[in-house]
Nucleic acid binder design. Structure first.
Lengths: 229, 229
DNA sequence: ACTAGTATACTAGTATACTAGTATGATTTG
DNA sequence: CAAATCATACTAGTATACTAGTATACTAGT
């Protein structure tokens, strides 16, 4: 992944988004254009433009003349994002089963090998990165880069939820196994089995009760309910 | 559809986007922040913010210190947008076939009735509006409003292409018939037939040769090829 | 008439100032 | 002591100024 800074707007956007997804900026926290522009040594204009995009992705909530807040995790959005991801990944899987070359398959297997290595070191952040790289690679190799990019815009709540989940319940072995099976079914050109495996993969680990207990103030309904008391 | 102005940024964004989709701002035209802000009587800041969003949707192309242009229609984007729309519409159709109430079905039939009326008057703009309203309604009734909104962001090239196509080949009767059948299959809870009908609906009328002849400078490859000569 | 150099006028990106809404703390009043 | 009022300090939205890159027009030399 290229890490060049690009415009100041891109720099602020990427920096703040990373912090939100990695929970350094926690759900419900107050953030302001002034604070972030001072911290990142840029003016308010590119900061404001980055904030607008983050608000479009519902990662922050902006109240005019009041302040901006990191959004609470909304399980409705998590569910809808999962729905979109599942259906689009099944659609590209259909293409992959019909078109992937030996080189494409080797690239995917190389990513899985790296996952195996980092799983041995309990390196969460890297595992997330590789997991995402695996799915992105399938989209790109199917010629659906824009589709991938558009979906990313609605995955903010889903990714925060999943990141929390995998901290509480670290189950990379299952994920690696599922990835391996998916590649094997692509190799065999067996879309039906690949689809089945992917749907299991995307649906797995969705129990939220433990997370709600551990982080009650991170979630939308729970925080609102506790505020009502 | 509510037509209130909202912020100046929203106002500029909606106004310029409408003009692009309805071909009043034609592919390849030069537009500038200064020109648009003067024409719409707002300052450069909200105009610039609107331009940024339009650039993200690839409806305009911004060249720093040079100018901004309405993007040429890119058939690769048209095809990818069609792919996303088809697969997501099939996915919500699955939900619709299992969950729609009599009221939901009546609402869809009411939209079709309006289509019949306006088709009689050859009112293109209204027919487009109603066609879009029909598909949007299905998403919203399935609880997938965000999905609909995200998909809209990548439909700009597709919509311009389809709007040109329907000027050249006005075939609203077929579209109305397809809508009617889709609703009927939803009513019967027959997802398989509804899916089949929708895939036909989304794929229909994709010949571009006639459009390329009529509007050669509107399309990305064609304009680039003619510039090479 | 052509070319190279220079000046000017345009652009988008960024910085900063201004405005209006909101929240908080201080002061006054009952 | 509590409630109401006022003043101040914050915020986001918008307007405007500044900077740097690029395009075009003008001028001088050959």
């Amino acid at each position: 992944m290229v890490t060049q800074r690009g415009s100041n707007r891109d720099y602020v956007y990427n920096t703040v988004k990373d912090s939100i997804l990695n929970m350094r900026l926690k759900p419900g926290m107050l953030i302001s254009e002034k604070e972030i522009s001072e911290r990142l040594q840029v003016s308010r204009t590119p900061t404001r433009e980055a904030f607008i995009k983050l608000a479009e992705e519902e990662l922050i909530v902006i109240y005019p003349q009041k302040g901006s807040f990191v959004s609470l995790i909304d399980m409705a959005q998590v569910e809808e994002a999962r729905f979109v991801r599942e259906n689009m990944e099944v659609a590209v899987l259909n293409i992959a089963c019909r078109s992937f070359s030996e080189k494409d398959l080797l690239d995917l297997e190389a990513l899985i090998s790296q996952q195996v290595i980092y799983a041995g070191h309990d390196s969460y952040e890297k595992m997330h990165e590789l997991d995402e790289e695996f799915h992105r690679a399938i989209f790109y190799k199917c010629g659906k880069a824009r589709t991938w990019n558009v979906i990313q815009q609605m995955l903010g709540h889903y990714k925060r939820f999943r990141n929390l989940l995998l901290e509480v319940y670290f189950d990379w072995e299952t994920i690696i196994l599922q990835h391996t099976r998916i590649v094997e079914y692509i190799r065999r050109r067996d879309f039906e089995m690949a689809e089945r495996e992917l749907r299991i993969h995307v649906k797995s680990r969705f129990e939220k009760d433990e997370l709600l207990k551990k982080y009650p103030n991170y979630f939308k309904e729970s925080a609102e309910r506790s505020m009502q008391l």
